[in-house]
Design a protein around this nucleic acid. Structure first.
Lengths: 256, 256
DNA sequence: TTTGTTAATTTCGTATTATGAAACTATATT
DNA sequence: AATATAGTTTCATAATACGAAATTAACAAA
């Protein structure tokens, strides 16, 4: 039984709760915030002023509401810029997006989630959620997640399955381990994974893992499209393109 | 004389210094970090553990080095997603990128800086810095910055000029206020601003402001390209396209 | 104008909390 | 075996963050 250590700095916990709440709700007033956080309003006021001092929060002089500044985006940009896998994979993702005419994603495994670290939108693709980059998606219900899991041992997969909080996101989400294991074997045979509206209704995607080298975490790429543009026959076309892209990226990364 | 209030929470200051240092340096060991921050190593260790508790920092079990997690990118993504100007402008930026074949940026004014809040790369454009989004650039030495400044009063411009820390980033950077004011008048006449390698050698760009409505901050868009592809005659071609884009975005935003 | 209401801000005595010197552990190096 | 280097843990104490209460500000109703 894993027991999470308690946070050694009380304010730290409170500061980041404040930040996360602001990120989630958008601009908020002091009282709303303190109610939401179950903290004394003085405490929240002090925290906000501290964040304002450092330019992470700003208060609108009109409405007096507090909100996060783009300084967080600056930190995010630095983190992403230091990831050379992104710049390495980028040209290949572009080519794939052009070939398929659909949106292409690059994700990195992180705990029980996959995190979108890059995306290339094809010009004809429909407008989807802006700036997915940074968003997390559970491994068990995403094409990219399953593609990465298929590279791991069955024990590892089961351990991750148990740590995940399995929920039906759509009527197609797989929530039984035995069924999931069958799908994993299929992925191992085919070399690619599918997501048929398991995560979001109306969206299908095809994904392959990128075999990482030495200390790197697992990566995966995917091509996503509305169901109507992603028939079973279309999947077979894209399959070849995405597998070639995988080969090219791995060659470029120095994987044999 | 503006005196910055001292931070009302000591740890808060220290926590964000730690985060910023990690963002800048990448993975670091405890002693390196504590030297860099001029803090007791126990203090830094406690801060890091607090951040690890909340999953903002991870320690590599091999090298024992600490680094930031993608959780910051998640916060950044939420901030950007809540900005409806981005999704509103996106289709127009795409069209412009396609028409020009060059990289198009959307920025938002923030203090004495412009912040990149979106970008669309054209397929043929050369690979530049990955994920600029979130990065800040000074107003005085960027096309987008000058485009936004030209919309303001001369007093406001001077006040921002004085607050900025003017430095020559390249041999073409303008560092004299009188010369700068002449350029601003030219922008007001032409309706667009230029950046001829004032910010980065070899890169030229053409920019226009987006007139914002009610409480919104100023925005601007730009087309950037290597000097070779951005001759004076090419600028005249792009000028018409970017001015039309400006009109279209403003119509779409409800500005008359 | 006065009264009531709601929300943000400031003050200040005090309990709590973060601090950091020192001790400890682990690993590598001479 | 001794020395060096880096990370981790402990604990008495000084410093800090806490929050109840008072204050200010803006607005609405009587």
């Amino acid at each position: 039984m894993e027991e999470k250590k308690t946070n050694p700095i009380q304010v730290s916990e409170r500061i980041f709760h404040t930040i996360e709440t602001l990120a989630h709700h958008g601009p908020m007033g002091l009282l709303d915030l303190s109610k939401e956080l179950s903290l004394n309003k003085t405490t929240v006021h002090r925290i906000l002023n501290s964040l304002i001092c450092m330019d992470y929060v700003r208060q609108d002089p009109e409405s007096l509401k507090y909100s996060l500044t783009y300084k967080f985006c600056g930190i995010s940009a630095q983190i992403l810029a230091s990831n050379n896998v992104i710049s390495l994979a980028r040209p290949h993702l572009r080519k794939l997006a052009e070939q398929t005419g659909e949106t292409v994603h690059l994700v990195q495994m992180d705990g029980t989630n996959a995190i979108y670290i890059d995306k290339v939108e094809a010009s004809r693709s429909s407008v989807r959620l802006v700036s997915m980059v940074g968003k997390a998606i559970p491994l068990y219900c995403s094409g990219v997640g399953k593609a990465m899991l298929a590279d791991m041992t069955d024990e590892r997969i089961q351990s991750i399955w148990e740590k995940s909080s399995i929920r039906s996101l759509t009527e197609y989400t797989i929530t039984e381990l035995t069924q999931f294991q069958k799908i994993i074997s299929a992925i191992r045979q085919n070399g690619y994974a599918l997501d048929k509206e398991e995560n979001e209704l109306g969206v299908r995607c095809i994904a392959v893992s990128i075999t990482a080298f030495h200390g790197n975490p697992p990566y995966a790429i995917s091509v996503s499209a509305p169901r109507d543009r992603m028939s079973d026959s279309r999947i077979l076309e894209i399959k070849d393109l995405i597998l070639t892209t995988k080969e090219n990226i791995q060659k470029n990364m120095g994987v044999i």
